[in-house]
């Protein structure tokens, strides 16, 4: 059974969101997602400063058997990327919620993004396959 921390929010496309100070949101992929992708070999990251529409594909995680897009959960600007992933994509496999974070976003609109899943709901989604 994969690890689904209760204090994070999730998307249907298997990203997690962590609220950081000053309205910044950190994004990564769930433990369940990294497990089903297998050993990651490459991560393509967006440029810092790029503005993203909600639902826009903005990064790619790649294993030997699959490549999967990462979608922006909200309209936002990229404020930081995890540059370590360029050399060490396996950080996502080893520590998906910690050192394997992918990017930090500054949402364009105020207030909590809508349509996100709680850990409990994401658990159900992950269990269904």
């Amino acid at each position: 059974m994969s690890n689904i921390p209760a204090d994070l929010k999730y998307t249907r496309s298997h990203e997690w969101l962590k609220a950081l100070p000053e309205g910044i949101v950190e994004i990564g992929i769930s433990d369940h997602a990294q497990e089903s992708l297998g050993d990651l070999v490459f991560v393509e990251l967006p440029e810092v400063g790029r503005s993203l529409a909600a639902g826009e594909a903005c990064a790619v995680v790649e294993s030997v058997k699959a490549a999967s897009d990462i979608y922006a959960p909200v309209a936002a600007t990229v404020v930081a990327i995890n540059a370590q992933l360029a050399e060490a994509p396996e950080l996502i496999n080893q520590d998906p919620y910690g050192r394997g974070w992918i990017m930090r976003l500054k949402p364009t609109a105020q207030g909590a993004p809508s349509g996100l899943l709680s850990a409990h709901d994401y658990q159900a989604l992950a269990a269904a396959g």
Binding site: V41, F42, E62, S63, V64, K65, A66, A67, D69
Partner: peptide
């Protein structure tokens, strides 16, 4: 064969 995730049999429409 390597970097196959670029190719049609994995990446399909992309």
């Amino acid at each position: 064969l390597t970097l196959q995730a670029r190719e049609q049999h994995i990446r399909r429409a992309k």
